[in-house]
């Protein structure tokens, strides 16, 4: 039962492919796998902390101003992540640019706060947050892997090359916006195709 709260975020209600939330950072930073990992770690931290805090205070927050309150809470954690990354991983911080502070407006976080954490218990909210962030991480890293592979002609995470260069002329487009939209389109279509096939049986 409780496990369900955890796993639903990963598969059944994957925030990107099923709920279609948090697309902006997903598409913007998924040019490289390491960017994607950094981003998803940031989201992980903010989502878990804010979900827990919000569900702790859920009865104290007056409903009229709940959204601003959620946002302030989330924004504070985002600022922490921002400062932390600035101090310890300045290069990554540079590359993520404005998308790092923009975690604050990531629909996943506010959406979970509004739809889940403000109603359910602390532990449930925690599990939900962990599940959702893992789902987010899988999705964004997956997309990044596709794009980086096609745009660099090799598969590598950080500096570890997994598959050495297989083509000398990789597609530049995959680093550009069209490539991002295309990748997610193909992945979603593939998921849908499988679902239809399954239903057909």
């Amino acid at each position: 039962m409780k496990l369900d709260e955890l796993t639903k975020g990963v598969f059944k209600q994957n925030p990107i492919f099923y709920l279609v939330l948090g697309l902006c950072p997903t598409l913007a930073v998924s040019t490289r796998v390491d960017n994607a990992l950094g981003m998803s770690l940031g989201v992980f931290f903010v989502l878990v902390c804010s979900n827990v805090i919000i569900s702790l205070f859920k009865h104290r927050i007056p409903p009229q101003v709940r959204i601003p309150c959620f946002i302030v809470i989330i924004a504070s954690f985002v600022t922490i992540v921002d400062l932390f990354m600035h101090g310890y991983a300045p290069e990554l911080h540079e590359r993520l640019g404005i998308y790092l502070p923009l975690i604050v407006v990531n629909c996943i976080i506010l959406g979970r706060a509004e739809a889940f954490a403000s109603k359910k218990s602390v532990f449930d909210s925690f599990l939900d947050a962990v599940g959702m962030s893992i789902g987010f991480m899988l999705a964004i890293v997956g997309i990044a892997l596709c794009r980086e592979t096609l745009s660099s002609g090799k598969i590598a995470i950080f500096d570890y090359t997994i598959v050495p260069t297989f083509t000398q002329s990789p597609s530049v487009m995959m680093t550009l916006p069209p490539g991002a939209f295309l990748t997610i389109a193909v992945i979603m279509a593939m998921i849908k195709y499988k679902a239809i096939r399954k239903e057909g049986r």
Binding site: M188, A189, K192
Partner: peptide, 17 residues
């Protein structure tokens, strides 16, 4: 069928981009 709704919207966005 597998492209209906969002996937085709993403493809359109890609081509628009």
């Amino acid at each position: 069928k597998s492209f209906q709704d969002l996937p085709i919207a993403f493809v359109s966005a890609a081509l628009l981009a």
